[in-house]
Amino acid sequence: MPTQNSHDKVLLAAAEGNIKNLSRRNFLGYIGGASALLLTAAACKKSDTPSSSTGVDLGSKDTGILNYAYALEQIEAAFYTKVFESPYAGITADESARLGDIRDHEISHREFFKNALGAGAIISLQLDFSTINFGTRDGVLSVAKAFEDLGVSAYNGAGHLLASADYLLLAGKIVSVEARHAAYIRDLITPGSFADGLDANALEMSRTPNEVLAIAGTYIKTKINASNLPTS
């Protein structure tokens, strides 16, 4: 658990980083970002409970939601990168090409969030893929499907938590690509299953950050503190 002093230093560094990056990141809505940061600092001082200051703090407001997305993209990008360290037995040329595209899309997303968040970005998470069987097609695709569906439900469930229309649009730009991935992976496993798992109105079933992190937690070693995320 970091001391209050070190916590303040991190916040100060984050604030300085934001100021340095102001000119190239005016899209962030700097005023909104800064006030979010100040509120975070205030909140930390007020509620100095151990539970709210252990683990990697995703942060609050839009920064928190972007860090939440960044965490999920870290998992996806690392997973597909590992898939290609030793591709599963019998992978076809077409599967290799498309899964390679997906890996590079996820890396694009991860690095985008890293740069967009600047000094406000969380660290690179320690991941744990020990439960995944990377040697078989079933082992890889079943996890890929879970990650893609989870990502779609996560972005859909987080959209209403964003205050910035620019961020909402960015999340929208990414989530439809995740849905394209999800449908493709599902069809690889069972042709025609591209949109199984919808509700009775043929809508996707979105998940809250807590629901998503409970599922993703299996693959994350680093303790994550999501308690400052907006909930409504």
Partner: peptide
């Protein structure tokens, strides 16, 4: 949003 991603799955 929950319709938007279904359209993407169709696409």
């Amino acid at each position: 949003l929950n319709i938007h991603s279904v359209e993407a799955r169709h696409a």
